[in-house]
């Protein structure tokens, strides 16, 4: 068992205060994930590196943050072989701890390559929010039995922080997309209202009748009301020039 000293509650308070401050002030996810991985490496002594694996929209995996090249190597190998502790942690949404990779049978090819690269134990915890798995946070150790139940609890707290961040980023992206759709709808509506006003003047119609004219023209010519309105507006512009 690794000689990891117990962090005091004060250390924890400092670590999480640091992280919350980071979440508030940093603009990009990757910066915060880098911070989370470097804190994970520092708070789990004996680790050669820590990293975060994320699942992209298309289902592919990538390492979003890694403290050391060995993490990138071991992660890339998991994605390439389609097997490994972080993939299992991500897809089964369970923490995966391996005390001795030389005896590991679940991912024979990856475990052999990792052992060759000097890694003997690994701990990988899923990043889950509201039932959705975003990926995993992992640490690698050159010693067997590098991690304990307590290490698992600690890494789970980092994963919880990462999950809040990622869930928020996800919501933000969805909100931005809706925002863009709404702006487009407002632009269309504006153009159509302008076209309607021109038809009102030109054909001496009230607002509802003018709108019906636009709908008729659109249906007859099988072009959108927006396109009809754009033509009406453009025709005024030509007349006035």
């Amino acid at each position: 068992m690794a000689a990891s000293q117990d962090p005091t509650p004060e250390t924890w308070a400092a670590v999480f205060a640091h992280m919350s401050g980071g979440v508030l002030s940093e603009q990009t996810v990757s910066t915060v994930l880098e911070l989370i991985t470097s804190l994970a490496k520092d708070t789990l002594p004996g680790s050669v590196g820590a990293g975060v694996t994320l699942v992209d929209e298309d289902g592919s995996h990538r390492t979003a943050a890694a403290t050391d090249p060995i993490v990138e190597r071991l992660d890339a190998l998991q994605y390439e072989l389609g097997e490994g502790p972080c993939l299992t942690a991500t897809h089964e949404a369970v923490p995966v701890r391996v005390d001795d990779l030389s005896g590991e049978r679940r991912w024979p090819r990856w475990s052999a390559a990792a052992a060759q690269d000097g890694t003997s134990s690994v701990l990988s915890v899923p990043i889950v929010h509201a039932g959705r798995s975003f990926g995993a946070v992992k640490v690698y150790s050159p010693r067997t039995h590098g991690y304990t139940d307590q290490s698992e609890e600690i890494l789970e707290r980092f994963a919880a922080q990462a999950s809040i961040l990622l869930a928020n980023m996800h919501t933000l992206a969805a909100a931005e997309e809706l925002n863009e759709k709404l702006l487009q709808a407002l632009r269309d509506r504006d153009l159509i209202a302008t076209g309607k006003g021109i038809v009102m003047l030109r054909e001496n119609l009230d607002a509802d009748a003018a709108m019906r004219r636009l709908l008729e023209m659109s249906a007859q010519r099988r072009i959108t009301v927006r396109e009809v309105a754009a033509e009406v507006v453009a025709s005024i512009h030509i007349e006035s020039v």
Binding site: Q184, A185, I192
Partner: peptide, 8 residues
């Protein structure tokens, strides 16, 4: 609704 709204 958004499409309906865009039409006015």
């Amino acid at each position: 609704w958004l499409r309906y709204f865009a039409l006015g």
